[in-house]
Design a binder for these strands. Structure first.
Lengths: 128, 128
DNA sequence: CCTTGCCTTGACGTGCGCGTCAAGGTTTAG
DNA sequence: CTAAACCTTGACGCGCACGTCAAGGCAAGG
């Protein structure tokens, strides 16, 4: 399939696919006229990238997963480097959760302090 | 005081202060030679901006607080617009917390699935 | 032959909060 | 007189993941 169809199947854009290629994440065969030609394996790679991005990973983070699939593994996360990314990301997420909880408490305290009626009517917190 | 001293007192840079001015967040008197001249009230404004940024607010978010202080209020969050920003930010934080918790569970599930020994030795989760 | 719709590379734009020169003017210490 | 340490405006850079145009080549339908 050509780049337009791959984009359609993966639910992305041709621009994104060309960008992945420029970053060395995706390779493509070329037809005699210079068009990129992809197969189902490439679609698999793109979907791997997308699902990882969906959980907040950068394109750099996806490299080990793509390499793992390229190496012939069934899933992109069955290689040590990929799992290391998982662990690092988990640590980042935990740190972010801690921070956000602190921020949340700060905001709640400020709102409560400034607007005592909200303490009496916590309904405001749920509906807006 | 001039811009360098204000920056030093606030623990920021002259570039940041000039940027705030370009965004209409900070105003400055000018001495005859064109130098910016600030007073303690301006230092207060800068500190307000910084403390809000520290909890993840954008410069746009800080506008109502600055305006509130300019209007003569004791604290920047004693005006309706400021409290509205607090509430909006709280909603964003809550949404972000939900999302991060989902991501966290995804990562934990993946790590557990791929690396069963981590289930037996959760020590890995704490020390790296 | 012409239009339509695909494809190519290249290059600049986006948002945000400044950092980092560039090229100069001012003030103060020695 | 000169050097150091301030100050001024202006303009480009950064990171990230592309979006968006530009200018053109290729293939198929009518």
């Amino acid at each position: 399939m050509r780049i337009g169809e791959l984009a359609k199947r993966a639910g992305t854009t041709t621009r994104a696919l060309r960008f992945y290629e420029s970053q060395g994440l995706l390779e493509a065969q070329r037809t005699p006229n210079g068009y990129r030609e992809y197969d189902d394996h490439d679609l698999r790679l793109v979907r791997e990238i997308q699902s990882l991005q969906a959980v907040g990973m950068s394109l750099e983070d996806t490299r080990p997963f793509v390499a793992c699939l390229r190496a012939g593994h069934e899933s992109g996360d069955s290689c040590p480097d990929s799992r290391e990314v998982y662990r690092r990301k988990l640590a980042e997420v935990d740190a972010c959760l801690d921070r956000l909880n602190t921020v949340r408490e700060f905001l709640l305290a400020r709102l409560a302090f400034q607007d005592p009626c909200l303490v009496a009517e916590p309904k405001e917190f749920q509906c807006s």
